[in-house]
Computed example of a mutant assay.
Amino acid sequence: MKFHHALLFLHLAGVILWVGGMAFAHFCLRPAALELPPAQRLTLWCGVLGRFFRVVWLAIGLIVGSGFAMLGATGFAQAPVAWHAMAGIGLVMVAVFASIWFGPWQALQQAVAAESWAQGASALNRIRQRVGINLLLGTFTVAVATLGLAV
């Protein structure tokens, strides 16, 4: 096994955790959670997102660390255009996630702790919108990486 293969494994593991987790949350958990009353729904989301967001930070470390290690080993000038596109889009995704973490995620936790369900619903909606953006960006990035799309 080459070092590149280990880096690629770590990179893909991070992508699977992050993008797969967003897809699960959006397409499976969200529709089921909508059937719950606000207090239960927002408490559930607060617990789920608290765990998932810790996984996302780990995934970001794996993706960024392994991605830039592979890019550096290949050489920035010699790397395919798709790799540069992945890096750029990935950094945008990290910025979107950071905006969730430092914004509506904090508001959701505070609202749930205060049992302020209207404020919690508003914060959760902002999280949902940004996760939707990241899910689209992540899916596009996987397409760029696997289909060899020239950006």
Results as ranks from 00 to 15, higher is better:
2 K>Y: 08
2 K>S: 14
3 F>C: 04
4 H>M: 11
4 H>N: 11
4 H>L: 11
5 H>W: 11
6 A>M: 14
6 A>I: 15
7 L>Y: 09
8 L>C: 08
8 L>F: 14
9 F>D: 07
9 F>T: 15
12 L>E: 13
13 A>D: 08
14 G>T: 13
15 V>G: 15
16 I>A: 15
16 I>Y: 07
17 L>T: 14
19 V>Q: 02
20 G>L: 06
24 F>A: 08
24 F>Y: 07
25 A>V: 00
25 A>H: 01
26 H>P: 00
27 F>P: 03
28 C>D: 02
29 L>I: 05
29 L>A: 06
29 L>H: 02
30 R>G: 03
31 P>C: 12
32 A>D: 01
32 A>Y: 02
33 A>C: 00
33 A>Q: 00
35 E>N: 09
36 L>D: 02
37 P>M: 13
37 P>V: 14
38 P>K: 12
38 P>Q: 07
39 A>M: 09
40 Q>K: 12
44 L>K: 03
45 W>H: 04
45 W>R: 02
46 C>F: 07
47 G>L: 05
48 V>F: 00
49 L>R: 06
49 L>H: 06
51 R>Y: 05
52 F>V: 12
52 F>A: 12
53 F>I: 13
54 R>S: 13
55 V>C: 14
55 V>D: 11
55 V>K: 11
55 V>F: 14
56 V>T: 11
61 G>Y: 11
64 V>Y: 02
66 S>H: 10
68 F>E: 01
69 A>P: 05
69 A>S: 15
71 L>F: 08
71 L>V: 04
72 G>M: 05
73 A>V: 09
73 A>H: 09
75 G>M: 06
75 G>F: 04
78 Q>R: 15
78 Q>F: 10
80 P>T: 14
80 P>D: 15
81 V>N: 10
81 V>L: 15
82 A>C: 09
82 A>V: 10
86 M>Y: 01
86 M>T: 09
88 G>Y: 01
89 I>C: 02
90 G>I: 01
92 V>N: 01
93 M>P: 03
95 A>N: 01
97 F>W: 13
97 F>Y: 10
99 S>H: 02
100 I>R: 12
102 F>M: 05
102 F>E: 00
103 G>I: 06
103 G>T: 06
104 P>M: 10
108 L>A: 06
110 Q>G: 07
110 Q>P: 03
112 V>E: 00
112 V>S: 04
114 A>S: 10
114 A>N: 10
116 S>C: 12
117 W>K: 06
120 G>T: 09
122 S>T: 15
122 S>E: 14
123 A>F: 04
123 A>T: 07
124 L>P: 00
129 Q>G: 06
129 Q>T: 10
130 R>F: 08
130 R>M: 13
130 R>Q: 12
130 R>I: 12
131 V>W: 00
133 I>W: 07
133 I>M: 09
133 I>V: 15
134 N>W: 01
135 L>Y: 00
135 L>S: 02
138 G>Y: 00
139 T>G: 11
140 F>I: 14
140 F>K: 08
141 T>E: 05
141 T>Y: 03
144 V>Y: 09
145 A>F: 12
146 T>H: 14
146 T>Q: 13
147 L>F: 13
148 G>P: 06
151 V>M: 12
